[in-house]
Design a binder for these strands. Structure first.
Lengths: 248, 248
DNA sequence: GCCATACCTTGATTTACATCAAGCTTTCGA
DNA sequence: TCGAAAGCTTGATGTAAATCAAGGTATGGC
């Protein structure tokens, strides 16, 4: 079937499956299916059990908690090439988040069985899976660090620098990968606070904002900015530490 | 020689290695060594690369970030049977946390090579490793949920309920697993706030506190406290998305 | 194009928790 | 055994960010 072939091709393009032999890819393809979601559609709910995991071919998926009071906290925004649900699949426990398409999206669903078979036949793949989960864990730990010991301004700056992703110096222009609300939630901020922080960074000349388009004229300068009230120096308290080595 | 045997026995007792064949355990033992730490000793620093991971045989190890300003945030407290460092090992990136013994401790260090060999020879073990990492990830996601959308009182209650670990009803008595400072940090609280919360729960008759010893006379009542106090309850909010019709 | 709805911004006010500052209590080493 | 240090509690005060409240601006359906 051309549909099956299509899936095969999509799978083969994914970094995760790069080193698999054709026969194994074909095997995986048999355990996979395509999913199309339209913007706003919910893929699965918190509490669901997953018998497989998902890869984003196109579009954008939001992973989030919802509290009984209707509050919502975005944990992750997954774009093309990204995947989610592996951990829940391996764990065989209810999923702690729900997932929703932020745009019309095209996913692949890959059933557990295919992955288990691949692991059995290819220990390099097993290691790759382990490394993948490890990366996920690492990211989450970074988030915890961020939430625990950085101010909201620092979190926003960190996020912007990540988007700029020319790690060190120079300038950069890019688009926010989602609506400001969603990003605010991802950063554990209210939309109001996020807006104000962008405004103040803008005022300080560290960035310019036009809709979703952000320009950072001097990445180094942005990364150095801790928090200091530029104009008014009424309260001249100086709790700042000069130990600036934020590079990991 | 008897040392090697000792390690073999310790490994065989760990849940993670339960299903391995003796020959595989023996192989792992050859790649392992014992580590003794005294209270307060640092095992490794943030930024270190790990060529293996650690299992706690006895004692207690703290995983934490430290900020340049000397603040510290405890990410995890690992007791006997627990392990840490797997993710960093698989990822081959610098470790984001440092580790310190909270008590005199006895660990096993297991080198990467042994694990890779085990994965190669036993895909069930590979799956177990994957499930283990997945559980770790799950825990971290729980933490993020906690930090993001629960109040400090709710976090403390959640923590106490976890320690009580008779999930549903009845009463319980237990000891806090570490000093109140450390637990406060683990919960993203200052010691002062933690103390005040314990005090107020105590005042409310929900717990009694005597040093590290906590008694919960009615688990159900404790778990209900602080869960749904806000005024309007009927406000089931739709998720953050454009494609949802708002109520009213 | 026009309207409705969602999204974003900006200001005023509130609040949960941190910080600062003592006292108190337990632990532990000499 | 005593005394210092570390750990814990309690109160007063400060503050970062949330919440409340409009008003402004894109965006998509018809």
């Amino acid at each position: 079937m051309s549909k099956q072939l299509n899936i095969t091709r999509l799978l083969a393009d994914l970094p995760l499956f790069q080193q698999l032999r054709d026969s194994e890819i074909a095997q995986l393809a048999m355990e996979s299916r395509e999913i199309k979601l339209s913007k706003g559609q919910i893929l699965f709910q918190k509490g669901d059990l997953l018998e497989g995991f998902y890869v984003v071919v196109e579009g954008q998926i939001k992973l989030a908690f919802s509290s009984p009071q209707g509050q919502e906290k975005v944990v992750s925004i997954v774009g093309p090439g990204g995947s989610f649900g592996e951990a829940v699949m391996f764990m065989e426990k209810p999923c702690p988040v729900f997932t929703q398409a932020l745009e019309d999206s095209h996913l692949l669903y890959i059933a557990k069985r295919g992955i288990f078979t691949a692991i059995e036949h290819d220990s390099v793949f097993a290691r790759r899976m382990l490394a993948g989960l490890s990366m996920r864990l690492h990211g989450l730990i970074q988030d915890v660090e961020d939430y625990s010991l950085h101010s909201s301004t620092q979190r926003v700056i960190g996020f912007l620098l990540q988007l700029a992703d020319k790690p060190t110096k120079g300038h950069a222009t890019f688009e926010l990968p989602a609506s400001k609300q969603v990003i605010a939630s991802r950063l554990n901020l209210t939309p109001e606070t996020f807006s104000r922080i962008l405004h103040s960074l803008s005022q300080a000349g560290l960035i310019t904002v036009k809709g979703k388009r952000i320009t950072v004229p001097d990445i180094t300068r942005l990364s150095r900015f801790d928090h200091a009230p530029p104009p008014c120096a009424k309260n001249a308290q100086a709790p700042l530490s000069e130990a600036q080595t934020p590079l990991e």
